[in-house]
Write a protein that binds this DNA or RNA. Structure first.
Length: 426
RNA sequence: GGGGGGUUUCCCGAGUGGCCAAAGGGGUCAGACUGUAAAUCUGAUGGCGAUGCCUUCGCAGGUUCAAAUCCUGCACCCCCCA
C-alpha cells in the first residue's frame, strides 16, 4: 500500500491526528474514510477543495472515500468556526444544494473502482428517520454535557456576549458524531477527516463509537487554508471562487490561480495538484529563478482548471486568456467570441446604427457601459485607453461601421487594460 | 431654555461678493514602467449639440449688474452655559 500519511505530511495536509500509529494502520489494508460537506450553497467552492483533494488522494492510495453531504446537519448549522447563529435553510434549498454539490464531486472521486469506489451519502437518509425521543435515548444519553461545553466550538460562542448559541446548534455535534457511527455500521468507515475546526466534532464521533460499539475509530484534521497576506483563500472582491461554471466561469477560475501570489504558489501546488514531490520542487526552483514567467502559477491553473472544468474548460480559459491579454481579434466567429467573452457584459443594438456615418466611438463606449458619460468616453479615447477589437484607437472623432465588426455581428470594445464589453448588432 | 459653531463637488477639506465647475488630499479612471505583482511617475476627474451653454456649494426666498460667499426663514449636526 502507498504510504498515504507520509504523502499527506510532506504536502502539509496534516494538522492533527487522533492516533500516533495511524500511518501503520493505513498501510495494513484499504480503509474507508469520510469527509462531511455542509450544503450551504448549490455549488462547492475553493474552500472545499482541500478536503475534496484529500479524499481523492486517499482513494488514489487505495482507500475508499465517502463524501457525506449534510442534508440533515445542514438544517441545523455547525457552530464550529462561526461567530453567529446560522440562519436555517429551507428543505427545498437544501435538496437542491446537495444535488449541485454531488454532481461536482464526481470530477474528483472515482465512483466506479470496484472495492474502493467512492460513495456519496446524505445524512438526511438516516437522520430523517430518527424520532426526537429515539435520538435522545440512543445518542444523547452518551454525551456528558460538561464534555460538550468544553469543546472549543461551544466555548468560544458562549464567551461572546454579542451572540448566543441556541440549543439547536449546541446539539450539532451529536448529529455529526452519530454520522460517524452510522457510516461505521453501514460501510465499515473507520476514519473521518475534516478541517481543523472539525476536531471537536470528529473526536465526539470517536467517543460515541467507543461507547456504543466498543470500536476504535480514527480522525485527522487538515490545516486551515489561508494566504500569505492573511486573507482567505478562494475569495475575491466579488465573492467566493466557485467550482460551478455558471457561478465562476472557467476563465475566471483559471485567472484566480494565475494571479496567485508567489508566496502561496508552492503550498497550493502541494495542496491542490496531483504532481509529485520532485515535480513540484523543481517547478518551484525554476519559478524562483524567473518569477516573471509565472510558470508555477500557470501549471497550477492548468492542473486545477482541467480537474474542475475538464480539458475543454481549460482550453476555453486559455484561449480567453490569450485574447484578454493583447492578442488581436480577427478571424473569429460569433460563437467563438461569445465563448471567450462569456464573462463580459454585452449589449445588443440594432444593426442600422452602423449604417450611414456609423456609430461614433464615443457613443459606443457609453452604450457598452465602459464610460459613464460622453465626457468620460472622450477622455478615455484622448488618453489612449480605448480599444476596438483590441487595437488602440486614439482619435476622438472615430466612427464605427460594419467593417469594424470582429465577427458577423460582434464588436469588442475595451477601455484600459482589461475592461471589456461587447456590442452585438442584430 | 440661553450662547456659539457647522452643513461645499464620490469622501475629507479649503474657499467670506466677480479672477469659482470651485485649492489641496483621498478615492476612482487612463497612460508609462512592470511579472496579468507591488511600488513609482504622468494626466484626467459635473453634464452637453463644447473656445460656448446648462446644472452644482443643506432647503426656500431676498439684496446685487454679479452670490458657495451678504440678508431672512426653515431643516439637520456639533459645542458651551443652564
Amino acid at each position: 500500500m502507498h504510504d498515504i500519511l507520509s504523502e499527506l505530511t510532506w504536502r502539509g495536509l496534516i494538522n492533527q491526528t487522533t492516533d500516533e500509529r495511524m500511518a501503520d494502520w493505513l498501510m495494513e489494508k484499504p480503509r474507508t474514510l469520510y469527509v462531511g460537506f455542509d450544503p450551504t450553497a448549490d455549488s462547492l467552492h475553493v474552500g472545499h477543495l482541500l478536503a475534496l483533494m484529500t479524499l481523492r488522494r486517499f482513494q488514489q492510495a487505495g482507500h475508499r472515500p465517502i463524501a457525506l453531504v449534510g442534508g440533515a446537519t445542514g438544517m441545523i448549522g455547525d457552530p464550529s468556526g462561526k461567530s453567529e447563529e446560522r440562519k436555517l435553510l429551507s428543505e427545498e434549498t437544501l435538496r437542491a444544494n446537495v444535488e449541485g454539490m454531488a454532481r461536482q464531486m464526481k470530477r474528483f472521486l472515482d465512483f466506479d473502482r470496484g472495492e474502493i469506489s467512492a460513495l456519496l451519502v446524505n445524512n438526511y437518509d438516516w437522520m430523517g428517520k430518527f424520532s426526537y425521543l429515539g435520538f435522545l435515548r440512543d445518542v444523547g444519553k452518551h454525551f456528558p454535557v460538561n464534555v460538550m461545553l468544553a469543546k472549543d466550538s461551544v466555548r468560544s460562542r458562549l464567551e461572546r456576549t454579542d451572540s448566543g448559541l441556541s440549543y439547536t446548534e449546541f446539539s450539532y455535534m451529536l448529529l455529526q458524531a452519530y454520522d460517524f457511527v452510522q457510516l461505521y455500521d453501514a460501510h465499515g468507515c473507520e476514519l473521518q477527516a475534516g478541517g481543523s475546526d472539525q476536531w471537536g466534532n470528529i473526536t465526539a464521533g470517536i467517543d460515541l463509537a467507543r461507547r456504543l460499539r466498543s470500536v476504535q475509530l480514527y480522525g485527522l484534521t487538515i490545516p486551515l487554508l489561508t494566504k500569505s497576506d492573511g486573507t482567505k483563500m478562494g475569495k475575491t472582491e466579488s465573492g467566493a471562487v466557485w467550482l460551478a461554471a455558471d457561478k465562476t466561469s472557467p476563465y475566471q477560475f483559471y485567472q484566480y490561480w494565475i494571479n496567485l501570489e508567489d508566496a502561496d504558489v508552492d503550498k497550493c501546488l502541494r495542496f491542490f495538484t496531483d504532481l509529485g514531490r520532485e515535480d513540484i520542487e523543481s517547478l518551484v526552483v525554476r519559478h524562483m529563478a524567473d518569477p516573471g514567467r509565472r510558470e508555477a502559477q500557470r501549471r497550477l491553473a492548468d492542473e486545477l482548471t482541467r480537474l474542475v472544468h475538464g480539458a475543454e474548460g481549460l482550453s476555453t480559459a486559455q484561449r480567453a486568456t490569450e485574447v484578454f491579454f493583447g492578442a488581436e481579434i480577427h478571424e473569429l466567429s460569433d460563437s467563438q467570441l461569445r465563448e471567450i467573452f462569456a464573462d463580459v457584459p454585452s449589449k445588443a443594438l440594432p444593426r442600422d446604427r452602423l449604417s450611414g456615418n456609423g456609430l461614433s466611438l464615443i457613443d459606443a463606449l457609453v452604450e457598452a457601459g465602459l464610460a459613464k458619460s460622453k465626457g468620460e468616453a472622450r477622455r478615455t479615447i484622448t488618453q489612449g485607453g480605448a480599444y476596438v477589437n483590441n487595437r488602440r484607437v486614439a482619435i476622438v472623432e472615430t466612427n464605427l461601421g460594419p467593417s469594424d465588426l470582429a465577427s458577423e455581428t460582434v464588436l469588442v470594445l475595451r477601455s484600459g487594460k482589461k475592461n471589456y464589453a461587447l456590442l452585438r448588432f442584430e
